[in-house]
Every structure is written in C-alpha cells, then in structure tokens.
C-alpha cells in the first residue's frame, strides 16, 4: 500500500496499516512480560541471603536426626491414605448410586450426607473420632488405622460420591439406550457400558481426591497416636521443636508427600492417555 490516499474500489477494505496493529501490540506485550519476569528473578536472587536459606532448609545435621523416623512415618501416611480411600470409595460409590436412585428418600439422604460432610472441616471429623464418637456411641475402635480410615473416609466419600455421580451422568444417554435395546438388563448395562466409560471421565478428579486425602492424613495426630503410629506431618512438627536446622524437617516431609503425589499424577495421565486413545466417542 502506498502512502497516498486512494479512493477504495467497491468491495475493498479501506483499512489501513496502523503503526500498532493488534498483532504487533501482542508481540511487544509478550516481550515485555519476559523482561518483567527476568527482572523479578534477578531481584529475588540478589535480595535473598542464600547461605541463611541453606542453613534453614538444608541443614545436614537436622536431616540426619529425622531420617531414621522417615520410613515408618512414610508407611503410616500411606496406610492411612489407602485405608481412608478404601472407605471413601466404597461409601462414595453407595452414595453416588443413592443420588441417582429412583427412590426419592435415598436421594435425599445422600444429598444431606454430602452437603454435611463437604461443608465441615475434616479436622472436626477427625477430632470427633478421637474423642466424642467413642464416648457418644459407646464403641471403642482399638485400631488407629481404622479410626483414621473412618474419619477421613467419611469426609472423602462426600467428595468422591459427587465425582462418581458426575462421571456416570456424563456418559451419553444414548449409550444406555443402545445397550437396553439389545436386551441388556439395567445392571449389566451399568457394568459393561456405563462404568467403563465413566471410569475414564472420573480418573483426573479421582486422582485429585486421592491427593487431597493424602494431605488430609496430616490430621490423624488428633486421634492421639503412639510413636510408631506417627505420620509424616507429626514427625515433622515434633522435629521442629528440638532441631536446630530450622525448617529442614518440614522440607524433607514435603518432599516425602511429593514422592507419593507426583507419581499419582503421572499414573493418572498415563491411564487417561491409554484409555482415551481407544475410547474417545
């Protein structure tokens, strides 16, 4: 286009080439973001006293003190998580089916349950299982793992139920109708057609539930634990009281949690990819 004004022929755009076209503006803006990010990183790097940070987060002596306790605590955390998830998944499945039931009373009960346990802090439930529940109901639950599984599972079931319900409802109705039109019973249709498809849909949110549950096991110390029942967070907190290494114990504990949760995310993505490749509708 030349600089001189031209009368546009019919059907051509008069528009012009502004110095700051939207695309050019976006490009400049993007470059500016990189510059700002770099400036912040440099500023933080210069401002922080790295020796002090090292002393507080990577103190070798403090690490040596807590290291012998880690394997047991790691195993305990895993046990509480798995047991809690087993309860949560079983109860959650029942609740999800109740939410989808044709019987109004079942739907109502499930809804009340879910709203209640979703709405109160998990901490309250764990404390209840440590003190109030054994007294109020006159039952003595001897095993800490059982108590932890029930307390965490009851809470987790509320979330899992909603995840499962959404997953089942996300399977297109036509899939059910096709199965029923071939003479499959309601239950058989669920097992062969609905659940396998719902599984793939709920995989990512279910991984979320598991990771949240893993972190919620940090509450089980409220049940009152013997030393060999300590979970990761409990030994980390105790180590803080007597160690000189600042936050080193917490840093190690955090790494242990990531050791559990990061592979889960990987596994979930792998499963999703594998089933997704074959079954995308």
């Amino acid at each position: 286009m030349t600089g001189s004004p031209v009368t546009p022929a019919p059907g051509t755009l008069t528009a012009s080439r502004r110095r700051w076209s939207p695309r050019r503006r976006a490009r400049v803006f993007r470059a500016a973001q990189y510059v700002v990010l770099l400036a912040v990183l440099v500023a933080v790097g210069l401002a922080v006293d790295w020796a002090n940070v090292g002393e507080n987060f990577f103190n070798a002596e403090a690490a040596r003190q807590i290291l012998p306790q880690l394997p047991t605590a790691f195993r305990n955390t895993l046990t509480y998580t798995l047991a809690g998830f087993a309860v949560g998944l079983s109860l959650g499945t029942v609740l999800a089916l109740m939410r989808l039931s044709a019987v109004g009373l079942y739907r109502w009960i499930a809804t009340v349950y879910i709203e209640f346990f979703r709405g109160i802090p998990a901490l309250l439930v764990v404390v209840s299982f440590g003190y109030a529940v054994p007294i109020a109901f006159g039952v003595n639950i001897p095993s800490v793992t059982t108590k932890a599984a029930l307390a965490l599972g009851l809470v987790s079931a509320a979330y899992i139920a909603e995840t499962l319900r959404a997953g089942i409802q996300a399977v297109p109705k036509g899939q059910v109708e096709a199965a029923r039109s071939l003479g499959m019973s309601h239950g058989r249709t669920l097992r062969t057609v609905v659940v396998p498809q719902a599984f793939r849909i709920v995989l990512p949110p279910m991984t979320n539930e598991f990771i949240l549950l893993t972190k919620d096991t940090s509450l089980v110390f409220l049940l009152g634990l013997a030393v060999n029942q300590y979970d990761l967070t409990k030994i980390g907190r105790d180590a803080l009281n007597n160690a000189t290494g600042g936050l080193t114990p917490l840093f190690l504990i955090g790494a242990c949690y990531l050791l559990i949760t990061l592979p889960l995310g990987q596994l979930s993505r792998y499963l999703e990819r594998r089933t997704g490749a074959r079954s995308r509708a």
Binding site: G174, Q175, A178, R180, S181, L182, Q197, R278, R280, A281
Partner: peptide, 17 residues
C-alpha cells in the same frame, strides 16, 4: 422381548469403549 427387536438410532450410539 428386546432381544427380538433391533433398534438403530439417529446418533448411532455405538459403545465408545
């Protein structure tokens, strides 16, 4: 009864899995 009656749907409804 349905085992004797085939049905074909507008949206095909093949089992995706």
């Amino acid at each position: 009864v349905r085992t004797h009656v085939g049905m074909v749907f507008q949206q095909f409804n093949l089992f995706a899995n």
